[in-house]
Design a protein around this nucleic acid. Structure first.
Lengths: 232, 232
DNA sequence: CTGACAATTTGCGCCAGCGCAAACAAGCCC
DNA sequence: GGGCTTGTTTGCGCTGGCGCAAATTGTCAG
């Protein structure tokens, strides 16, 4: 396994405020691992023995209840810290992370987390910020599911995905990883049937363009209007 | 303003792992403030200039959307850290905290947070744990609202409230602060009408006992069965 | 190229729970 | 103590979106 080049990661929030030598030292303890599309980085319930930084790709984080119902918790994009269960005093991962496309991540042993934050307190700040913004997102989602109609929720979700992982194409903004109707349903608390119906309707109005595991936002401003409930 | 006695707080997670002298030093920078029932500790959108530790009482944390829809995010009980927006790099409070009963909190200026965690790294850990468990709770709530029927969600919510703030009484376990049907509705993503109907039904079956802003759980095991979806 | 599988679309019927409205307690303040 | 405010209960009708089922299309392995 080759050493990881500092220049790949020096600009990430996690490494901000650290001297190059410190960055190198952190990187020396990490392993870089490839995850082909479809493979799991970790499984819900497994021993949380590592934490990660995504260097390349996209992960889908999903959670299954005891009754077998599944939800998509979020998507992880390059540059994000994830799998920090140990830092929150969990001994097991609370969800499963699956590579949505071929991905590469840095992995540290969880056991070194404690010493790391003592040596580099800014790391704790950055983790706190990561977890905090995740909390904000999740609370926003609770409010959406509680108070909005399915159409609005789907519109919000697509806009958020486009912001997080949108790639400009001729037709508009394409979500940069394969995502099924089922996935969208599991993010919005609805069913794939309903998602399909709504996307079909939107497609015929020119708001989006679809395809097998593909979604392109053609008219973001109309979608934003829908998301805000301004019935059009 | 009198100094705060260390012995009141020494056992709280936030102060665990600190020497008595360090605890005293932290306490010296804090102010103790009384919040009579119904008063706001901070308002959504206000400048996040302080963070708090609840010494006594219960707070209701609520969030309002731009469209005016309100949800109850959670209840804070004595011993919990709250209002740590600054630590998550927010400049404004993302929600409003209102005293559900007469309450007392310690307040620190947000500006001292950064120096505090550098001096006492275990504080960062404890904050991370606080925020992390809040994230777990919120994600659990997303899954409940997404996948469960209203009855199950209300049962889950009551059980959680009872665990967090239950007080044993002759009839069963009473939730230790005034809580309206509307509040329960805003925690479960439903309407006060539906909550009222369901609680009435449960009352006639002897599962709970109600009253104005009062809920007593009489048969926790039946409620647990309902929560798990074992239709009875 | 072809079969087989996975994802998507669409029609149809139904029901959980919402919205509206009105009656009814229970505190609380003066 | 009496009126008023705030919270709760309950009836009724309606509908958003779910569940089921079947047809269709796109992809990939061989």
């Amino acid at each position: 396994m080759a050493a990881v080049d500092r220049t790949l990661v020096a600009n990430l929030p996690m490494f901000a405020g650290l001297a190059p030598a410190e960055q190198d030292e952190l990187l020396r303890e990490a392993r870089s691992i490839r995850y082909p599309k479809g493979t799991a980085v970790f499984d819900q319930g497994a021993d949380a023995d590592r934490f990660f930084l995504l260097l390349h790709g996209h992960l889908r984080v999903e959670k299954t209840t005891a009754q077998g119902q599944q939800s998509v918790v979020r998507y992880v994009s390059a540059g994000e810290l994830f799998g920090v269960a140990q830092a929150m005093s969990l001994t097991r991962y609370p969800a499963t992370a699956v590579a949505a496309v071929d991905s590469i991540a840095l992995a540290w042993p969880s056991s070194s987390w404690h010493q790391m934050i003592i040596k580099y307190p800014t790391l704790a700040s950055s983790a706190l910020q990561t977890v905090g913004s995740r909390l904000q997102d999740t609370q926003a989602r609770v409010m959406e599911i509680s108070n909005e109609q399915v159409e609005q929720r789907i519109a919000h979700t697509l806009l958020r995905l486009a912001k997080q992982a949108g790639r400009k194409v001729e037709a508009g903004i394409e979500i940069d990883f394969p995502i099924s109707r089922q996935d969208v349903a599991e993010m919005t608390g609805t069913t794939l049937h309903t998602v399909s119906r709504i996307l079909s309707a939107w497609e015929s109005q020119g708001l989006v363009e679809g395809g097998r595991q593909r979604i392109v936002l053609c008219d973001a401003s109309s979608l934003r209007a829908l998301a805000e409930g301004k019935d059009s």
